[in-house]
Design a binder for these strands. Structure first.
Length: 116
DNA sequence: TTTCTGACTCGAA
DNA sequence: CTTCGAGCCAGAA
């Protein structure tokens, strides 16, 4: 029966995602899978993106989160698709054709950077 | 309660 | 090299 109460409170999962994204240094980016894995829920990369959707209005730099290919998949979910590119370029990230150049160079792994 | 979808990822053809 | 399919978790209808 009722088991888990839905809506009792925002799941910690979302907060954890926001926290990690917030820790992303300026000029760096990370992938959904990296965050999901850091949270211990590897495979729920899609969930991370879902959390990002709610991050609108929060202090979460969702523009620093891209897919594994370095492609700005979530750009369409921003107020303006161009906003994501501008933000990234504004931070020193080179974006070409909706894709992050030197993706591996600017990649920020929470598991490593946070010291796992 | 069940069912579906999703800003993903990886492996295989 | 590109393209396709299946897996995965969690929330919303």
């Amino acid at each position: 029966m009722m088991s888990k109460k839905s809506g009792d409170r925002k799941s910690n999962f979302f907060e954890d995602v926001y926290e990690v994204v917030r820790l992303i240094p300026k000029g760096r980016i990370t992938s959904y899978g990296a965050i999901a894995k850091f949270l211990g829920t590897a495979g729920s990369a899609r969930m991370v993106g879902w959390a990002m959707n709610q991050s609108h209005g929060l202090d979460v730099p969702a523009h620093r989160v891209v897919n594994r290919n370095g492609l700005l998949t979530g750009k369409h979910h921003f107020e303006d698709p161009k906003r994501m590119e501008e933000l990234l370029e504004s931070e020193g990230v080179v974006v070409i054709n909706d894709k992050v150049e030197n993706y591996e160079s600017v990649f920020w792994d929470p598991m490593i950077e946070l010291g796992m």
